[in-house]
């Protein structure tokens, strides 16, 4: 078992023939992900990386039976790409694109919800179930198979955590980067609940950051709904107020969204918090 993705996902790539799309699709294929084709308007009928190219998502779904998409479309068109995927009956969209206006994203998410399509991202590294399926831009080989469910807002911090988890002899059931934008699809709560129900996942590692209140909501949810042990870390304890720290959503407004506030809430919910990202592995060993 795992969550959200496994070797059965039939995946298409939106923005398939672009530079980013090409590079990462090739990596995903090499990893063994079941990429069945891609979409680039006006390039339908061609073959790219040995897979068929379609003009529209709808055509791709009809021809290939695709149920999952990974989106590399530039920010100005990315929200439209999400709408198109939802309209075509895709059930999971992984949105890598950074820089989508929040107004567009609110709109896209409302429609995706109506069409029961889940969104991961935007501005995220994607999702990986080791040895089965990688839908994202992460380096596959640092994710070893195991029983730790990993959920994070950030890309390279996910890699760092996974590296630590495997270097102390553990591994990952599924790792998911939910993205650092103000408006994102799946949030901590939905993913935590999936990990709770997943038999393979024994421990959960949750990595948040400053800005917004998703971690606070997660803390409330954890209190009554999650029985599995969780190790937590919040990045940005040293970040100044009012400054955007790289991610569009990583900003402390007034006193809201600070690392201190989030850490306290999660601690009160029973999460084993670490002050330094280098201590995740130590905490993992202590718990077992």
């Amino acid at each position: 078992m795992s969550i959200l993705v496994n070797k059965n996902n039939k995946i298409i790539v939106q923005g398939f023939t672009g530079k980013q799309g090409t590079f990462h699709a090739e990596q995903c294929i090499a990893y063994g992900s079941n990429i069945v084709g891609g979409v680039t308007p006006n390039k339908g009928g061609q073959t790219h990386l040995g897979k068929p190219v379609f003009n529209t998502v709808s055509e791709a779904v009809k021809q290939t039976g695709a149920d999952t998409t990974i989106i590399f479309v530039p920010p100005y068109f990315a929200a439209k790409a999400i709408l198109e995927a939802a309209n075509a009956g895709i059930s999971l969209a992984v949105v890598i694109t950074e820089g989508i206006p929040f107004k567009d994203m609110i709109h896209a998410k409302l429609y995706a919800t109506k069409e029961s399509m889940k969104i991961i991202g935007p501005n995220c590294p994607g999702i990986i179930t080791p040895d089965e399926c990688k839908i994202g831009i992460m380096p596959g080989d640092i994710f070893k198979k195991g029983n730790v469910g990993l959920i994070s807002k950030s890309g390279t911090l996910t890699y760092e955590a996974s590296h630590q988890i495997s270097s102390c002899g553990y591994g990952i059931s599924t790792a998911i980067g939910i993205g650092g934008d103000p408006i994102i699809g799946l949030s901590f709560i939905e993913v935590l609940s999936m990990f709770e129900d997943d038999e393979e996942t024994k421990t959960i590692v949750l990595i948040g950051e400053i800005g917004g209140n998703l971690e606070i909501e997660a803390a409330e949810f954890i209190k009554t709904n999650i029985k599995k042990p969780i190790i937590g870390f919040i990045a940005g304890a040293t970040a100044p107020k009012g400054k955007r720290m790289g991610h569009a959503g990583a900003i402390i407004s007034g006193d809201k969204g600070s690392a201190k506030e989030k850490k306290k809430a999660l601690e009160e919910a029973g999460v084993h918090m670490v002050d330094s990202v280098a201590h995740i592995s130590t905490m993992l060993e202590n718990l077992h």
Partner: peptide
Amino acid sequence: NGAGLAMAVMDM
């Protein structure tokens, strides 16, 4: 490289 890791390094 990466915003989250950059913050984590400052914190460390």
